[in-house]
C-alpha cells in the first residue's frame, strides 16, 4: 500500500483494537481543526504515526517482578517489526537502562541497548535519557553513546522538542535548558503543533514518589502561549492522561515492570509478575497524526494476541 493510500480506518482495523488494547481518541491531543492557515505545506501528506517505547531498563534483574527481563525488549521489537504499516519513527522516552553505580557497566548497558534496538526495522530512532541512564553521572555516559540529551526536530510540519529533566539528579530541567527552550519556542508561530518528549512528568503528578519535575511549572509556562502542545513522557510505568490548561500530558507503559497508580498504595513498588498473565501492564504506544485532526493514541501489548 502506498503512503498516499494510507487509510486511517484500515489502520485502526489492522492495529487490532480490542482484545485488551486501549484506544484513546478525542483526548484533545490536538484540536480537530487547527484554524487559520494550515501549518502543513500545500499538497504535503501529513498523515503518519510514530511509536513511543519507554522505560526498558535494560540490565534490570528481578525474577519476582519480571522473570523475562532479558527478552521483554526483544519481544517488543518483534511486535514492532510485525506491524503491517510501519511508523515513520520511534521515540524512546528514557530509562533505556537500569541504573548501576559502576561507570563501566553503565556504558556497557547503554551500548548493548543501542545494539539491541538496531534490530528494529525502522531506523529513524530518537532517544531521551531517564534518571537511571543519566542522573548518577549527569548524563556523561549517555552523551557518549547517544549524543545530546535535549534537542528539536521537525517531522511533516510538527515540531518535536526533547527535554532532559534527569541529568540533574534533583530532577530539574535547569536554567540553561529553559533558556534554550525559550529561544527555540520564540522561533515558532503560536499555532504550530508542538510535541514535547520527556522522561519525568512536567507537572506534580505525585511528588512524594518523585513523579514530578522540580521546575516543570516553569517549563509548562513557557509552552502555555502555544495553542497546540502535547507532552509524551515515561517514568511512571503506566498510562496516565492529564491536562494543564490546554496542554495534554500522556505517560506511557513500561517495557520492564508496571508501577501502582499514583497514591494507590502507601509505598511505591513494582507490581509483581503475574504468571497467569505474562507481560500484563507492559507495552508501547502508537500516536497517529492526521492532518487537521486530533491525534490518536493506541496502547500495544508486548506480544500481540
Amino acid at each position: 500500500m502506498k503512503k498516499k493510500d494510507f487509510d486511517r480506518r484500515e489502520f485502526l482495523k489492522l492495529s487490532g483494537i480490542g482484545a485488551g488494547a486501549v484506544f484513546a481518541s478525542s483526548l484533545g491531543v490536538f484540536p480537530k481543526k487547527l484554524g487559520g492557515n494550515s501549518i502543513w505545506a500545500a499538497g504535503e501528506n501529513a498523515d503518519f504515526y510514530f511509536l513511543q517505547l519507554s522505560d526498558t531498563h535494560w540490565g534490570f534483574e528481578g525474577p519476582k517482578v519480571n522473570p523475562e527481563a532479558k527478552v521483554t525488549l526483544k519481544k517488543a521489537i518483534q511486535t514492532v517489526n510485525s506491524l503491517k504499516f510501519k511508523p515513520d519513527f520511534i521515540v524512546f522516552t528514557g530509562d533505556l537502562t537500569h541504573t548501576t553505580d559502576d561507570d563501566k557497566e553503565r556504558r556497557r548497558r547503554l551500548r548493548e541497548f543501542k545494539e539491541i534496538v538496531q534490530g528494529l526495522e525502522i531506523k529513524n530512532l530518537r532517544f531521551l535519557p531517564g534518571e537511571h541512564d543519566a542522573s548518577l553521572d549527569e548524563g556523561l555516559a549517555y552523551k557518549e553513546v547517544f549524543g545530546e540529551t535535549y534537542y528539536t526536530f521537525t517531522h511533516k510540519g510538527i515540531h518535536f522538542i526533547a527535554l532532559d529533566n534527569v541529568s540533574d539528579p534533583a530532577g530539574n530541567v535547569g536554567d540553561v535548558q529553559r533558556n534554550w527552550l525559550k529561544a527555540e519556542l520564540n522561533k515558532l508561530p503560536k499555532d504550530v503543533p508542538i510535541v514535547v518528549l520527556t522522561h519525568r512528568p512536567l507537572f506534580d503528578l505525585m511528588p512524594d514518589w518523585d513523579w514530578a519535575t522540580k521546575d516543570g511549572k516553569q517549563v509548562v509556562d513557557l509552552l502555555m502561549p502555544y495553542k497546540n502542545v502535547v507532552v509524551f513522557y515515561g517514568h511512571i510505568h503506566q498510562e496516565n492522561h492529564h491536562m494543564t490548561g490546554h496542554i495534554s500530558h500522556h505517560s506511557a507503559q513500561s517495557l520492564i515492570f508496571p508501577l501502582p497508580a499514583p497514591g494507590s498504595v502507601p509505598k511505591k513498588a513494582p507490581i509483581p509478575w503475574d504468571a497467569a498473565h505474562p507481560f500484563r501492564g507492559l507495552g508501547f504506544r502508537s500516536i497517529e497524526e492526521e492532518k487537521q485532526k486530533a491525534a490518536e493514541i493506541k496502547e500495544w501489548p508486548v506480544v500481540k494476541a
Partner: peptide, 9 residues
C-alpha cells in the same frame, strides 16, 4: 529527592 542509585526509591 536527589536520585542516588538503585535503592533510591
Amino acid at each position: 529527592s536527589v536520585f542516588c542509585g538503585s535503592g533510591h526509591e
